[in-house]
Simulated scan of single mutants.
Amino acid sequence: MNLRKYALLLLTSTLMPMVSYAEPTQLMIRAMANDAKYIGTSVGGVRVTVKDAETDELLDEGWINGGTGDTDRLIKNPIHRGEVLTDKNTAGYLSTVDIDAPRLVKITLLGPYAYRQSLQEASITTWLIPGKDLLGDGITIKMPGFIADGWTQVLQGGVVEFYLDASLMCGCPIKKNGLWDPKNYEAKAILMQDEKKIDEIPLSFTGPIGIFSAKTQLKESGHYKAILYVIDSKTGNVGLDRTMFEINLD
């Protein structure tokens, strides 16, 4: 090879861009109900999106499905640092992201999808390194709130019954002397007419599982809105549902 060809080859190789190859990187993503267990199939699953936190590029999306986890390990027994909390049946989504350099990603959860009135969104940011999988318990994002399903029953003479069916976001049951005891929660019905509050009615736990209820009598005909809620002031969990009804005293 003469000197001119060698110099040209050297210059060409110097100017050629470095070729980088994306590496599939796996990340286990889980959703946990605040003060309860993992959120999964029993409540309709949780939608997951993984985006570049700086450019908003969608890198992956999917659904969290599976079981709520071991009650003894998660709730009854003290959790020790470094202890593995999940197994192969625990709800999660195994995300695979192809990246060729470290990325700051934003993981967003939306669920539980079987109860649209109780949908919550939660998100975090974290770094992903190409080829460095994050498996096992993975990234767990806590979701606050209660699942709340409210309705009314209108009886004769302006009598109205209010009902609220509530559970933790994982579907874990509220029952007397249970792990989630109704005595720790406050439930009420806010009564509205023409977007003005006219009364607030305490709901008592009537069970056997998750049901709070009350009864009142209204003296005027018209359309009413009931906002039924349950709150745990210690954990910050709140669940709410709204319903409309009509009173006709004519």
Results as ranks from 00 to 15, higher is better:
8 L>W: 06
10 L>I: 07
10 L>H: 10
10 L>V: 10
17 P>G: 09
17 P>S: 08
20 S>V: 15
22 A>H: 06
28 M>L: 10
37 K>C: 05
46 V>G: 08
47 R>Q: 13
52 D>W: 13
55 T>W: 09
59 L>E: 05
60 D>T: 14
62 G>A: 12
66 G>D: 05
68 T>Y: 07
73 R>N: 03
74 L>W: 00
74 L>A: 00
75 I>Q: 02
77 N>R: 07
78 P>L: 00
81 R>H: 11
84 V>N: 02
90 T>H: 02
95 S>C: 05
96 T>P: 03
97 V>C: 11
98 D>I: 05
104 L>T: 13
106 K>Y: 00
107 I>C: 08
110 L>Q: 10
112 P>D: 04
113 Y>G: 00
114 A>W: 07
124 I>T: 14
128 L>F: 08
136 G>H: 09
139 I>Y: 06
142 K>H: 10
143 M>W: 01
148 A>T: 04
161 E>F: 00
162 F>Y: 14
164 L>A: 02
164 L>V: 06
170 C>T: 04
173 P>D: 12
176 K>I: 12
178 G>M: 05
181 D>S: 04
183 K>Q: 11
187 A>W: 03
191 L>D: 02
193 Q>D: 00
196 K>M: 09
197 K>R: 15
199 D>I: 01
210 G>Q: 03
212 F>E: 07
215 K>N: 05
217 Q>E: 15
219 K>F: 04
222 G>H: 13
223 H>N: 12
226 A>S: 14
226 A>E: 01
229 Y>N: 10
241 D>L: 05
244 M>R: 09
247 I>M: 06
